[in-house]
Design a protein around this nucleic acid. Structure first.
Lengths: 207, 207
DNA sequence: TTTCTTATTTAAACAACGCTAAGATAGCGC
DNA sequence: GCGCTATCTTAGCGTTGTTTAAATAAGAAA
């Protein structure tokens, strides 16, 4: 807030502690895992006292909300390649699914935080669901261009939800070590993801 | 503590504290939620000191493992109706899916513990995957009797995994309040579940 | 400048947590 | 009786999330 125009004249004691805390939390998440992500550890990583975060976040869960928000933005970046690819609509649905699961596979602890926040509030994240550019809307549109009946609102929504469920389920299960042999047989995790999604109706045929 | 000499002859100090702790944990899970399920609270609920559980479980996660085990057994009971129903194989796959998600919807905190245990060990629960009676095998068999090629081992396994992913994803997302209007439009959560699963290829057509 | 006001941070403390170590107690075999 | 072992308790350690009060620094007003 209120960042001034010189290189580093910190307008307040720390500068932008809120931002620093979120970044420290992300750093710890990659380094130590979700298990050991305590508010005190975040404050320690940012070089401030344990009580400092409370001037920028109501409580720990609000810090995690901010981390999750950062996560959904990173996921959006991971989507870009699939979004811009010049491929058929059904293929694009599947590539969105692959990008989603691959992101979760590469940042498991961040994904866990992202999803736990949603679950605790019994809410889909705003990024995913609400605005016009959201992945939810995008899947919906691709389903239509792949042949779904645009007037059957209910069926369309059910199909979109089925997409998300399959992607989320796969995202959380892909690390199970029971699947290692199958991944090897298919030549890697990427092929495994594509293989599973190919068996989910909405991903396979566009409806 | 130490209720007076009741009919039952307690062979040790408490009788079967291990069992009592698991039951106390399940009770707390229904009453207070997963958030407030601490080891100390479980001990309190069971009427013993905070250190007592450590003679029956190595640490907290081992207690949760036992609770999760209990959970998978309860889920197996919830499966029975769908298993024994006299319906076509594709219908049975879907009914298994509905039973799975409905269980998670009715016992959200227990389901969370069940799944967190699996994720922390990067392992499918043994009940689900290993033995001959497992739901995993059962889905597999039903897929075959519904027309899947029994010789294509890889495709069969991918389809079975797709089933689990969709069911798990729906299990975790069904409580999102964004879906309330849709549930109302369809006449209840049960219809909503069936509607979503109908859009997942493996549930809809058996392959 | 000096003073006042407010935003930010710290230090100190509280209750609760997971867990460990030491000792007390109860059941069992001898 | 004796010892032995499993079980449970009391006490304590280090950590956590959170609150309170005091210190400090920045901006505005005099």
């Amino acid at each position: 807030m209120r960042e001034s125009e010189t290189p580093e004249p910190r307008p307040y004691h720390h500068g932008d502690l809120r931002r620093a805390l979120v970044e420290a939390a992300c750093r710890l998440l990659e380094k130590e895992g979700a298990q050991s992500l305590s508010l005190r550890a975040v404050a320690r990583e940012a070089g401030v006292s344990p009580a400092a975060p409370y001037h920028h976040f109501k409580d720990k869960s609000e810090l995690l909300d901010a981390v999750a928000h950062e996560g959904w933005e990173k996921l959006d970046l991971a989507f870009q390649a699939a979004r811009d690819a010049q491929i058929s609509p059904p293929d694009r649905v599947r590539e969105l699914g692959v990008a989603y699961v691959r992101f979760a596979s590469q940042h498991p602890d961040l994904y866990r935080v992202m999803y736990d926040c949603s679950r605790d509030k019994a809410d889909m994240p705003a990024h995913v669901h609400e605005n016009e550019e959201s992945a939810y809307r995008r899947v919906r549109e691709v389903l239509i261009s792949a042949g779904a009946d645009p007037t059957d609102e209910i069926s369309l929504e059910l199909a979109t939800i089925a997409c998300w469920c399959a992607a989320h389920g796969l995202a959380e299960m892909t690390s199970f070590k029971q699947f290692e042999p199958l991944k090897d047989a298919l030549g890697g995790e990427e092929a495994f993801l594509r293989g599973v999604l190919a068996h989910v109706g909405v991903f396979a045929k566009g409806l």
